[in-house]
């Protein structure tokens, strides 16, 4: 019988990787999630605490998947504190995926914080397809940089470059990810741009990419409840991020006036960024 991805499945934590003092990657066995497309997400239930939408991260073992969490609120802190052997409930994967043009040769990935997660999964796919990849990792300081080695490992079969930018300048290029992007684009050309991270960063990535007429895809985040397109708490204009997204292309993004302007809080009120 085919598995109903909407029904919560129990998974058990097999490994935990400390990425930074406040970021961890949690690995678990789950055949369905191991086949998730780059950009797709899981609804992760921390029993008795919270259910969170989490982008699917790569795992280096067969039939495994992972999630990467930053300790922040009640739910994410409870997840952060989970140990090997403990149980999580997951459903999904949900949402669309990053599309890769068949003729793409070089692409630029711009990520900030845990927004890097779907980009790492995308990088693994690009590596398989032997597409050259430049990844910009944006962080506030050296202590907050993660996935640099992971990205390098994931891209090992293809020509690639990893650029780190830190806001305080204690590591890599000084400035934010979009400063690094502007700098890179002065010297190199790309077939397309992929981005995920804070929405204001992605808005800027869209603006810069548009100035160079580059196609772009961005994975958006909104407050999510059902994950299956029935509650609309994740809506941006007439789109449901969980169902129509999370990945949107430049054509769609340019029509979404709320992109980079407003989000909706838990009550559904529009809040200015």
């Amino acid at each position: 019988m085919p598995i109903n991805i909407n029904i919560i499945r129990s998974v058990f934590i097999e490994r935990v990787l400390n990425e930074t003092a406040s970021v961890k990657t949690i690995l678990f066995k789950d055949r369905v999630s191991s086949k998730a497309d780059p950009g797709q997400f899981l609804m992760v239930w921390i029993p008795g605490v919270e259910e969170l939408p989490m982008s699917v991260m790569v795992a280096d073992e067969e039939d495994s998947a992972a999630i990467t969490i930053r300790r922040k609120g009640i739910g994410s802190t409870a997840l952060f504190n989970k140990r090997i052997g403990e149980m999580l409930g997951i459903r999904g994967p949900y949402g669309n995926k990053f599309k890769i043009a068949p003729n793409a040769r070089t692409v630029l990935l711009v990520g900030g914080g845990t927004g890097l997660v779907p980009l790492i999964r995308l990088a693994a796919k690009l590596n398989e397809m032997r597409i050259c990849c430049t990844l910009i990792i944006g962080a506030s300081s050296k202590r907050e940089v993660f996935f640099e080695n992971t990205a390098d490992a994931v891209l090992s079969d293809t020509k690639h470059k990893i650029i780190v930018s830190t806001e305080n300048g204690d590591y890599g290029i000084k400035g934010n990810a979009t400063d690094a992007m502007a700098q890179v684009l002065k010297e190199e050309t790309f077939d397309s741009v992929y981005t995920c991270g804070p929405e204001l960063m992605m808005k800027k990535v869209l603006d810069i990419a548009s100035a160079y007429s580059l196609p772009i895809q961005a994975s958006l985040e909104r407050h999510m409840k059902c994950g299956i397109g029935i509650c609309a708490s994740c809506c941006i204009e007439d789109k449901l991020v969980c169902k129509d997204g999370t990945v949107f292309c430049e054509k769609q993004l340019s029509k979404l006036n709320e992109f980079g302007m407003f989000y909706r809080d838990k009550t559904g009120r529009k809040i200015v960024y």
Partner: peptide, 21 residues
């Protein structure tokens, strides 16, 4: 529409919706 109250309501913490077979 969703049911509208006088004041905004945040509702409950997730999980707020569960799919059953």
């Amino acid at each position: 529409s969703k049911s509208i109250s006088c004041e905004p309501m945040e509702g409950y913490r997730n999980p707020t919706a569960v799919c059953l077979e």
